[in-house]
């Protein structure tokens, strides 16, 4: 059995017992031919490559293309495939739409289910006990902590992704974005807006005269 010297970044002074054991397990699985180093490296590379920019492109298209928006809400997997995203077969994808009347917030109370195919890895807070515990029982307080004060009249729907479906929020298109290109619009779509803890950004600068105070 040869030890693996190809990964100097694995040297961490603060690694825990569990960290070392993961690396030991990787080495043993390679030595026994259960997996290859290339396969593991390939999955690492792909997971590093996935970012919320993918979800943002899907949202921006939905904002500008009503027919696509309809298809996205009806069958998100097929619509994402249309956009060139092949979702894993392990879980289905459902997109829920925020409107002037309804706001959606996504959580996974049992673990940390998340639409990684379109958003990459979830933020640490999404996996935290505080978020998993509080998002279902005091969602409005949680949203306030994120800086989003929901109007009292807004109907709030919390989605607990408990099983084989991953949820993505289609945030509201911000005012003052008429005529913007899909690329520019995608720049306004944040990860947090697709989880439902925030709204999409508003455009900065002179384009948006809509919120000016007089």
């Amino acid at each position: 059995m040869s030890s693996d010297h190809r990964h100097p970044p694995l040297l961490h002074a603060d690694r825990s017992v569990r960290a070392t054991r993961v690396l030991a397990i990787r080495q043993l699985l390679i030595d026994k031919g259960v997996v290859t180093a290339a396969e593991v490296d390939d999955v690492v590379a792909r997971s590093r490559a996935r970012t919320p920019a993918d979800g943002a492109k899907v949202v921006a298209r939905a904002w500008t293309d009503d027919a696509f928006r309809g298809r996205l809400l009806a069958d998100a997997r097929a619509a994402a495939r249309e956009q060139g995203y092949r979702l894993s077969h392990d879980a289905d994808l459902v997109v829920v739409e925020n409107t002037a009347e309804v706001h959606h917030l996504i959580v996974c109370t049992l673990c940390s289910c998340y639409p990684t195919s379109l958003l990459g890895q979830p933020p640490d807070w999404y996996k935290s006990f505080a978020y998993r515990q509080r998002a279902v029982i005091e969602p409005r307080a949680v949203l306030r902590e994120f800086g989003l004060e929901l109007p009292a009249a807004m109907h709030l729907r919390v989605v607990d992704s408990t099983a084989d479906v991953r949820y993505l929020v289609l945030p509201r298109r911000p005012p003052g974005t008429e005529g913007m290109s899909q690329d520019d619009l995608a720049g306004l779509v944040t990860r947090d807006s697709m989880i439902g803890v925030a709204e999409a950004h508003r455009p900065e600068g002179g384009r948006c005269a809509c919120r000016g105070t007089s």
């Binding site: 709030l156 729907r157 989605v159």
Partner: peptide, 9 residues
């Protein structure tokens, strides 16, 4: 709100 909902699969 009294009509807020939670959806679970």
């Amino acid at each position: 709100r009294a009509d807020d909902v939670l959806l679970a699969d």
